[in-house]
Computed example of a mutant assay.
Amino acid sequence: MTLDLPAVTAALTTVPALPDGDTAALAAAVRTQADRQAIQDLCALYARAVDDHDIDALVAMYAADGVFERRGVPAAGSDAIRAAYVASFDSYRTMLHTPHPGVVALHGDGTASGWSHGHAELATRSTLVLASYRYEDAYRCAEGRWRFARRSITFMYAVPADRLATSFGGTDRIRWPRTSPEPADYPETAPTWDSYHR
């Protein structure tokens, strides 16, 4: 996803003044903050559910027609989402996801979008994989509850712990156990990656 970072930064960091005595505007501002907090809580609770292997909680965090996408491979609908997470849980005995703060843009129609990033330690039976990931999200509010309409994950790196130092400086930073090295999903693919040379 291409992100116009200067425009998004300006939009999300500019606080409009509220007209004096406009209770409707104040109520709308309070609702905006409540919606943003609910979405941020959803993302934090998601990380806990993944680490606890709480499959029912995870599936319930998605809309009924939601999509979980991992590196371009989508799982659509509750059954497919459940299967995707079960496969991950079967591969990694112990997982620790540390989400970092993200941003949320409300669209005013019960939908929102956002992105966040984080780090993870993922233990298989034979090795520890270290990963840095980014989520691009679409959210939907129904009956007062925010859920994921789509959650897409990509990776800056995913490598066995003993290979991080030797692989981090290269582009082939996706090195899941028993797979051939692959190029990282970002940041080299960003259209701005080399733009500072202009």
Rank of each mutant, 00 (worst) to 15 (best):
A80L: 03
A190K: 09
T111L: 01
R147A: 09
F155V: 02
V8F: 09
A75Q: 05
D185V: 01
G66Q: 02
W193G: 02
G21V: 08
I55R: 05
P183R: 04
H197C: 14
S152N: 01
A165N: 08
T189H: 04
T13S: 06
V86L: 10
D20P: 09
A11T: 04
Y186H: 10
A165H: 12
T154A: 12
D79H: 12
L122V: 02
D90E: 13
R173F: 06
V104L: 03
T94V: 14
A142P: 05
I39D: 01
Y62N: 03
Y186R: 05
R82M: 07
T23K: 13
G170D: 02
D109F: 08
A57G: 01
R125I: 10
S132F: 11
M1W: 06
V15W: 07
L45S: 13
G21P: 08
R198I: 15
L122E: 00
D185W: 07
P101S: 06
A112E: 02
P181R: 04
P101M: 03
G102Y: 06
P74H: 04
P160I: 07
R175Q: 11
S152K: 00
G72F: 06
E143Y: 11
W146Q: 07
L45P: 00
R198L: 15
S167V: 13
A57M: 07
R150Q: 05
G77T: 09
D65N: 10
Y85A: 05
A184E: 02
C43Y: 05
S116C: 11
I153Y: 01
G110R: 05
T166Y: 08
R36F: 09
H119P: 06
H117S: 14
T189V: 08
T23N: 14
T98L: 13
A10S: 12
Y186W: 13
T94L: 15
A76F: 07
Y92Q: 01
S88W: 11
V50H: 01
I81D: 00
E136H: 11
P191M: 07
D56W: 01
G21M: 08
A105Y: 09
W115I: 09
T166K: 12
D51A: 01
A87K: 15
A34I: 14
A10V: 13
E69V: 11
L130D: 12
I81T: 02
I81A: 00
S180K: 14
L58D: 02
I174K: 00
Y85G: 03
Y85S: 03
Y135A: 00
L18I: 10
R151M: 04
A149C: 01
H197V: 15
M156W: 15
T171W: 04
V59M: 02
A138N: 11
A123S: 09
